[in-house]
Simulated assay, not measured.
Amino acid sequence: MPLVDRSQLKPGDVVSQDVLTPLGSVLFHKGRVITLRELDILTAFLVPQVNVERAEEPQQSTAEAAASVSVAPAAKSVLHTEYEEMVVQLRRAYALVAGGDALPLLALRTQLERLLSRSAEYRVLSFRPRLASREDFYFHSSVMSALTCYQLAQWTDLPQKDWMQVALAGLLHDIGNVKLDRDILTKPGVLTPGEQEEMKRHTLNGYQLLKPVAALNEGVKLSALQHHERVDGSGYPLGLGSDNIHRYAKLVAIADIFHAMTLERAYRPALSPYVVLEQLEKDAFGSLDPGFVRRFIEKATQFQNGSLVRLSDGRIGEIVFTDRTAPIRPWVSVSGTIVNLTVDRQLYIDECISH
């Protein structure tokens, strides 16, 4: 387990002892595989040396070496394994329903239970799918919405009997998309007025598909119908006001917006989770339930101290303090200097690198 100078590290080296930041937080855990990204982070934090494991390398020619260079993949967590299987199961369910078969709810629920058993490891601001193609956007958005809704159900003090049903509401809220033209769903440009009206029908389609499923409670079915309703009556398909929108649907709306904006789409790149939180905070004044949004922001940012982030000017730093009155704009330590984002309003967190 040699102690290697930062300048001598190579992609593929494996960290053999936790690497700490100057403030004592864990930068990389033991077992982390060094890639070019890790090298950038080590440079930003001025880490001089790292304990690594390095495989013995046979002597080879320069040409052979150039041809054989590869970067070892990052280790996959159990959470990611169960997440990816949930995406596979949901994709399969969509295909079955599109073909006229019944929704395979037992298989979906069984895998969802396996995924939710790892929910303590899920951090809504920093979790990223390992493989998320633009074509699979709705599957990833739905699975992450299920995870987020499961946490929201607990954060907003719903009874435990509701937690799984709220997670199912998040998972199935876009099931009505199976009846839409795929070209509309994946169109990279702006939808025409006619296409927008067609798109809005996924809410009605979803409710009709879920209505006969006895194992789902009414909240799950109404979430498919109401997740685009807004508390001020400006939503669709029925223009309902707050009192007539089911509580599940209000939670699903928050998760749906968050993940729709933080995932890459065919027509735009993924947005920073902190930028999206600011947008949700604005939407809480009229469009979304303000109490639920406030709770979501409070809890989602609660355990971010020690997280590595990239600022909008490209600098990498570590969150060292989160003010409860301004949780979206924490204090970030960059090379020993504290950047207070409540003061430096022109800056924002562009990316959560790790927790």
Rank of each mutant, 00 (worst) to 15 (best):
A153K: 01
Q279D: 13
S242H: 13
S272C: 12
K200T: 06
R324D: 13
V178T: 02
A249P: 04
Q89E: 13
S234W: 01
L103I: 03
R37L: 07
D101F: 07
G239P: 05
E229C: 11
V334E: 10
V26I: 02
L116D: 14
T43V: 10
V293S: 09
P188E: 12
N305C: 11
D323M: 07
T192A: 15
A102S: 11
R109G: 09
S287N: 12
M261V: 05
G206K: 03
P269I: 13
G206D: 05
W155L: 06
Q59I: 14
E135S: 06
R268L: 12
S119R: 14
L263Q: 02
M164Y: 07
D323C: 08
V71D: 02
R345Y: 08
E197P: 01
G286W: 09
G314Q: 01
L106A: 13
D313K: 00
M144Q: 00
L222F: 06
G100I: 07
A300S: 14
T262I: 03
G291E: 11
L27M: 01
A224T: 02
K221A: 07
I319N: 02
Q165S: 14
R134A: 09
R54D: 15
L238D: 14
Q151K: 03
T186A: 07
V78Y: 07
A326T: 12
A153F: 00
F139E: 02
F139P: 00
V78K: 08
A326I: 09
L105V: 08
D18E: 11
E57R: 14
Y267E: 14
Y94H: 13
V124E: 02
V220C: 01
E264V: 06
E281I: 08
E278G: 13
F292T: 06
S333C: 10
G317P: 01
S119L: 11
S333V: 07
Y267T: 10
F28T: 00
S145Q: 01
V71C: 02
F139H: 02
L147D: 00
H228V: 03
L172R: 00
K282Q: 14
V320K: 08
V343S: 14
H259Y: 03
E57N: 12
P193N: 10
R37Y: 04
S119K: 10
K299E: 15
L240G: 08
L115F: 09
S16R: 04
Q160M: 06
R310H: 03
L280F: 11
Q160P: 04
Y274H: 13
P73V: 03
K161V: 12
A326S: 14
E85W: 07
F303I: 05
R91E: 11
V178H: 00
E38P: 04
L96T: 06
D181V: 00
R182T: 11
S25Y: 12
Q226V: 13
R230K: 12
R295M: 09
G170Q: 00
D183H: 09
Q208H: 13
S117E: 14
Q165P: 06
H355C: 15
D289P: 05
N205K: 07
V33D: 04
D5W: 06
L131E: 14
S77V: 09
A146F: 01
